[in-house]
Nucleic acid binder design. Sequence first.
DNA 1: CCTAGATTGGACTGAGTGGTCCAACCATAA
DNA 2: TTATGGTTGGACCACTCAGTCCAATCTAGG
Lengths: 199, 199
Amino acid sequence: MLTKKGQATRERILQAAAELVAEKGAAGMSLDDVGERSGASRSQLYHYFDDRDELVREVIDVTTDAVLAAQDGQLEHLDSWAGIDRWFDALVDLQVDRQARGGCPIGSLAGQLAEHDPGARKALAAGFERWEQYLREGLTTMKERGKLRRDADPAELATATMAAIQGGLLLTQVRRDPQQLRIALDAARANLKRERVRA
Amino acid sequence: MLTKKGQATRERILQAAAELVAEKGAAGMSLDDVGERSGASRSQLYHYFDDRDELVREVIDVTTDAVLAAQDGQLEHLDSWAGIDRWFDALVDLQVDRQARGGCPIGSLAGQLAEHDPGARKALAAGFERWEQYLREGLTTMKERGKLRRDADPAELATATMAAIQGGLLLTQVRRDPQQLRIALDAARANLKRERVRA
DNA sequence: CCTAGATTGGACTGAGTGGTCCAACCATAA
DNA sequence: TTATGGTTGGACCACTCAGTCCAATCTAGG
């Protein structure tokens, strides 16, 4: 159904599309662009993807993979206060490096696609879910270990933290100021520590 | 330079453009659409606006006006805990009414435009600033009245709260669940109340 | 009334756009 | 070797888009 060569072509196309969406926005990506960058012809695009919308939807998944990969080594250690602190610091550092450009790749796509493409909305929800799950599980572990109050709700805490990250990144992007994320994450940290149980 | 009739035409165009941007996204709005909905001809569009980009930039301001107007009567009373609670409740109620659709009009535009149109980014920053200022001033008043700790920073508290609103609205929109905003705002409220001074 | 300038209609252009189609190519398995 | 099916190139189409242009029509002030 798909030879090794075909698989490689498909991934080249997807990679090129993901790059172009990141550079020009979802609406700014054209199939001509994708063809040129990936070295694939028109018929190849339509051989491996139903239409433009499906390509965009797959770009969402690829983008989610990239976002999670960029946090690799930190998402797995959200089961301690130190691990969470390192994670927050890394998120801010990344924005400093990027000069507060780009915001959250997933969040940006959400603003562009969530409202007008139901399939994309679901893919974005799945992406956020994958991300949030790491924190939820880390907090659950902390609760089991007695580091969080017995009545703490890891799911709600994780959601509130994700909201702070997304909102902080949005303000960072619009204001071109990484401190916006820093402020949002300081508040998120304080909010988590309200549930702290001291040894 | 601009007669009363001309002014009216200009505003009809702007209004139509703002509606279309809200409905179809910034990239989905075409000048043909705007012309049809506003009853204005091609040359009128270019008579009153330099080009498409300028029209979009003005749409940002109109959208900000609408967002602030929708909160009229609440933004002026963010100088008490009760006023802030009513504001948060109203924001959540609005999302329930809208079935969690649309997200924040300004935040959505940010995701669509902030990265690729510098002028739009500035307009969006100005919009957020107008919004945030209400809260910052309310909190400043509360601090002066001794309702907030002496070392509280109204500016940072306002920013953290705006981040919670934006992040909560984004998650609400993507997950089609108004509870996401509720959770984010509960955390924001708790974060503010950490600075509370009891009478 | 006259005129300068604001306002309007609408045809037109040229550069994309997503999508279709068909013939050719190539690998593999019988 | 042959046949099946994945793979590829690229012309082509109908359409939409932002932007231009010019002539016609109002409107306010002298």
